[in-house]
């Protein structure tokens, strides 16, 4: 077991902080670039189908920052943290995490998504000049777990409502979190209000996203998710759950100011989008012969300490 865990500590990229292997860059496969650049541009269009997701991104990053590095004032609060963005799509969240210094693996089961994400990442040198590090992989959560990957922070944002077996998905994500690390999830609650907003309004009436994007029956209520996390192996506790709502007057997404405020105006039955942070208890006995890496893991997985 131990060798497997240690393997998971292999850095995603070497930590030289440099852009590398320039000689290989001159060979671009024009066909492949052409094929995906239009798709990528569409995915990343600020006014396109994913516009609302783009607008939500700064708000959820701000939430992640508050949960993981509340004190840090510099521009790279996630420096040294190994992070997994599972279901990374076009790389929206991954890019932000890398800019904040994270050592990020963006994983997606869709080959197209990974190609779009890669193509887009060429548009920002800051993703490649460090200290943040970026890697995209076309793979699944369970394959990553099988390969022995582990992370300080696992983020499953706007994804659990799209998987077929959410409790199994949750277990796999949780197992990839190192002791002392955190798991962050955001999703949509299975309430009539959520049906009205995401299925009826967004898909049928306003046609902001295409029909079938959302499957209401797969939505999970925050209480159900909280219970599922508490029943996980490995000493899990839910630190924080908040609603995240679109404020049309301010033209931005806003996270509730208080832990526990999930629904609109604090009314539980009106909950729609919400975001949750859970942490995994640290197991001291691992420290016996792996002092070195556990030490670093503890530092990284902080829980609100400055670094």
């Amino acid at each position: 077991m131990l060798p497997q865990m240690l393997r998971g500590l292999r850095p995603l990229v070497t930590k030289t902080g440099q852009v590398r292997a320039l000689s290989q860059l001159s060979t671009i496969n024009a066909e492949e670039v052409q094929k995906f650049s239009a798709k990528s541009a569409e995915w990343w269009d600020p006014h396109g189908e994913f516009g609302m997701l783009h607008l939500m991104n700064p708000t959820r990053v701000s939430y992640i920052r508050d949960r993981i590095a509340p004190i840090a004032q510099d521009s790279t609060p996630f420096k040294g943290l190994k992070m997994l963005d599972i279901g990374c799509g076009g790389g929206l969240l991954s890019e932000s995490l890398v800019r904040l210094g994270g050592n990020v693996l963006g994983a997606d089961a869709s080959y197209n998504n990974i190609q779009m994400a890669m193509l887009h990442s060429r548009k920002d040198p800051a993703l490649w000049t460090g200290p943040g590090q970026l890697e995209y992989r076309n793979t699944t959560a369970e394959d990553l777990l099988a390969e022995g990957e582990s992370f300080d922070v696992v983020l499953a944002m706007e994804i659990i409502e799209h998987v077929n077996n959410p409790s199994e998905f949750l277990r796999v994500c949780a197992d990839m979190v190192r002791p002392g690390g955190k798991l962050l999830l955001s999703t949509i609650s299975r309430t009539p209000m959520a049906y009205f907003l995401t299925n009826f309004l967004a898909e049928d009436v306003l046609k902001m996203v295409h029909k079938g994007t959302h499957d209401w029956s797969k939505y999970i209520k925050s209480e159900e998710l909280r219970e599922a996390i508490h029943s996980l192996q490995g000493g899990w506790q839910v630190d924080d759950v908040r609603g995240i709502a679109w404020n049309p007057l301010r033209g931005r997404w806003v996270v509730s100011e208080k832990n526990g405020d999930i629904g609109v105006a604090g009314i539980g039955s009106l909950e729609v989008n919400y975001v949750l942070t859970a942490s995994k208890t640290e197991f001291k006995f691992f420290a016996i012969d792996t002092q070195d890496w556990l030490g670093s893991s503890q530092n990284c997985a902080m829980g609100g300490q400055p670094y």
Binding site: L53, A109, S110, A141, I159, H210, T213
Partner: peptide
């Protein structure tokens, strides 16, 4: 778990290819 994808990506599932 192969259905893991963000938003629409589930529809675009291709043979699993590791990059």
């Amino acid at each position: 778990l192969k259905a893991i994808a963000r938003l629409h990506s589930a529809k675009l599932l291709l043979p699993r290819i590791r990059t």
